[in-house]
Design a binder for these strands. Structure first.
Lengths: 210, 210, 210, 210
DNA sequence: TAGTAAGCGAGACGGTACGTCCTGTCTTCCC
DNA sequence: GGGAAGACAGGACGTACCGTCTCGCTTACTA
């Protein structure tokens, strides 16, 4: 089988693993050091000690490279953090929904302020805002897995009667993650454990007086 | 007082209004037609029938130009829409908070899907994600005014006892706008009146059963 | 009367002498310091503390400015060097043609290596090579007067029988000045008193054996 | 050995001959059509169908390009005109020095008035007047070879006793070429066969009566 | 086990845009 | 009305990257 493009698909079997890794490392390092716009394909190639064509052969754009590099970084981090195989991770269910969500959000806050992650994920998010294709891919590959965890946990809470039964979990979870995401993406406010804890309280009990 | 910069500040009094308008128009048109990354300063200058230097004299970057152009567009739209002077606009207070917020959010949905606004605001938002300075300016000039309206309306609701008295309005309002913003920015879900109506209901009454 | 150009001729009577002098000085200084190509009209205006328009009003080009500035410098130098009025100078006639010419050429050598003169006259000469109009003006205003002196001296020598009677003085004088000019203009050889003395000897007595 | 420059020297082996030729042609054509100052690097690149960087990669300046282009043109003309290998040309020696030099000068007059040669060589000469480095290169590469021919012919004449034995040929030859050069460069007089013939006569027999 | 074809490092190429500098015109305000 | 000041449309500068290409080389499949 051959891809739709005019070019014959390159032979993946003969691909240089060495070069791929070097390109990931170079891309992440450059984005962290100089920012996404100043990161160039030529720069990545030079830093990785790789010909430009090797990049163009395997990726379609700078965003593509960075997306894969970041995905790789995330998997690696996940692997380091415990789960060695393909992410059978779940939000813990201690029976206390509020506490469980708060814990996850605190971990998210930590990750959002980790400099190793911040630059590339901002870059990808920005690219995704402007380029719908990148945006959808970013969402599907990087956000959807986490979203699903929230959905699962919320459904469990629904079954346990801790959450209204008529709730759409895919909307409900946005009360936890969207405000945080917006503050982070758009500098609309500071990010802290206290803030995310408050979010959970407000969300669960509503803004209106009981 | 004199600005810190090395260049002598240009004389604002002699600025060509004609060129400024032409640059705004060209910038908005190009972003709408070709997208932000393919919009170049040279392109704006050419389309506006203006020397490049005239752009560089008054703005520091492509993002700067677009930000001002968009700001101008917004003001113009606001002026056309009724309030002729500096936006003494407020979220209506019919006594029914839910209805009032829903109405505003429906208007926001309309604006987010208006092609005239979509391209430039996406572009600016994306630039803001990646360039903190732009981000803060974007937030301060374009989002802060709207945010303040929500804060005012929420405070009125607090005084009327329709909202918990201990609530921080600056956090509370995020339940209305952040989920919508994220869906719009990151393609995490569809946007509709039904969706925003649901947001308001969930937010006011909480996710937990009453 | 109005010049052929579309613009009405500016009123010479109201012209600012102060600015003219400042422009001459600035032009000569800049050419000496930075070279002709790096000397710009803007630079001259800025250095002279003069508006650009003042230059464009009175001169047609950078070469024009420099030509007048240099002319003015030459006249001033001539005035300082003795003859206070319009150059009633002549090559001395001691009866010894060879000695007289040698003396004049030695003075020319001095002038060609005087740094005050070198930069602007090279610049003008170069411009004249490439722009025929400037070239002819340069020749007419700066070289022709000197050439005439040679012609006069050679005619006197002809009458005194020291030079062949059938000689065209306008060609003969080129044996004295052209080799020197070429060495100076084109770096085809070193310039010295010894060299110019030799030129005179060879020219007068011919290359062929007697 | 490595050049002193900061940039890594480009790989001459991979240079595009096609582009080089196109650049030469474009440069010569533009100089002939529009004159040297109006000939721009961008213009050459556009006309040659070449990226600007390709010019900047191989040449240091507009003058450099033109110098090489003109050199190439001269070699090509020489090759067309007979001598296919590296110019083993010499001024003919018929025994009659005057006649031989006159013939060569007449050819020079033809060349100086050939429009194909005139524009670029004037341009280069002018640039050489103002930029010593260019001037020396111009002299070394374009004039020195011809000069050497005169030196050789004059030495032969010296050995044959047709020219004074104590003569410095490098000075003597200037009587033939410098007056012509000056008239051509500086528009100090007309150029014709008659004129160059006269030069030879005056030079050989001297200005003084015999 | 040799032959061959793909991936690879390298980097020249035709291009486009950058941000700067200068041109020659124009407008404004001062004298 | 001349002059200082400087904004303007325009255009070239020299640089940096883009994405394509061609060159030898290395490396892994195929005959």
């Amino acid at each position: 089988m051959v891809t739709q493009s005019g070019k014959p698909a390159p032979d993946t079997a003969r691909r240089s693993e060495r070069s791929r890794r070097a390109i990931y490392d170079a891309a992440l390092a450059l984005v962290a050091e100089a920012g996404y716009p100043k990161t160039t394909i030529e720069g990545i190639a030079a830093r990785a000690g790789v010909g430009k064509q090797t990049i163009y052969r395997w990726w379609g754009s700078k965003a593509d490279v960075l997306l894969e590099a970041f995905l790789d970084l995330s998997e690696q981090a996940a692997r380091d953090a415990g789960a060695p195989d393909g992410e059978p991770y779940a939000i813990p269910d201690t029976g206390d929904l509020a506490a469980d969500i708060k814990a996850v959000l605190r971990a998210t806050v930590d990750q959002l302020t980790d400099p190793r992650f911040e630059a590339p994920s901002r870059a990808l998010a920005a690219e995704g805002v402007v380029d719908e294709q990148v945006g959808r891919e970013f969402t599907a590959k990087l956000m959807e897995p986490s979203i699903r965890l929230y959905v699962d946990r919320l459904r469990a809470a629904q079954e346990a009667g801790q959450v209204r039964a008529d709730l759409d979990p895919r909307i409900a979870l946005e009360f936890f993650i969207s405000p945080l995401a917006q503050r982070w993406l758009q500098y609309t406010g500071p990010i802290s454990y206290e803030y995310t804890d408050t979010l959970v309280d407000y969300a669960l009990h509503g803004l209106a007086p009981r």
